[in-house]
Design a protein around this nucleic acid. Structure first.
Lengths: 111, 111
DNA sequence: ATATTTACTTTGATTATCTATGTACATAAA
DNA sequence: TTTATGTACATAGATAATCAAAGTAAATAT
């Protein structure tokens, strides 16, 4: 699927927050995770995801910490914050609201 | 509701196409219509909607025609094109797909 | 007369998007 | 050994989207 620009972007934030709510993770893993969870449909590029993570951290929705066992590459693990959880609730409400409005149209004329 | 930027933008295109699929309309009416249909939740500004209409026309999803009965203000009526209908189908698929992915997360952890 | 509503337009500062490119280490293959 | 591939993160920068704000102007209501 080739997503229209706006939608793709609008989904990254809530999806990342949802992934992190399940448990801490790092950029590369989040990308693989989302790819797997969507059966390969959502293929996020790293250059697309990392800036979003940086921004979300700056906004206080997530925090980061470098971790690495000896002999392993360093990974930047992200955790969702309380503020992030609140934000996720809001985003969820907005998604559901808009989906509801659109669904109302789409139910009526079946195309 | 104070929508996060991305989402609001991502919904204008499919919503406008959905409105126009019901029947021709003009900018001002579309704004009022959406406001009414969402119980006042979605309050689009004109400066936000008109440029979107112009872009969508340039992209061939809608066409416009000035109309006005004598003694009435001229209105620019927009119609959805075949290409616009196709686009709406695609947007609908994408919305449903993403909503499905997000819903899967949101079902599991009830927050 | 004056204010409000209707109706459309454009500007422009700000921000977001995402491809492309770069670094660097680890591991597997040739 | 050297080459390729996979892992892991970062950022620059061209392109484009966003939306408030300000403008025009006619119609209607007060």
């Amino acid at each position: 699927m080739d997503f229209s620009k706006g939608l793709m972007a609008a989904s990254t934030k809530p999806l990342i927050l949802s992934v992190l709510k399940r448990g801490d993770s790092y950029g590369y893993q989040i990308i693989q995770n989302v790819k797997k969870l969507t059966g390969g449909t959502l293929k996020w590029s790293d250059g697309m995801v990392y800036p979003v993570l940086h921004r979300m951290e700056k906004e206080g929705f997530i925090t980061s910490e470098w971790q690495g066992k000896p002999g392993e590459k360093l990974r930047k693990y992200y955790s969702i914050t309380e503020r992030g959880k609140q934000e996720l609730i809001v985003e969820k409400e907005q998604w559901n609201f808009l989906h509801g409005v659109l669904s109302k149209f789409w139910e009526q004329s079946l195309t």
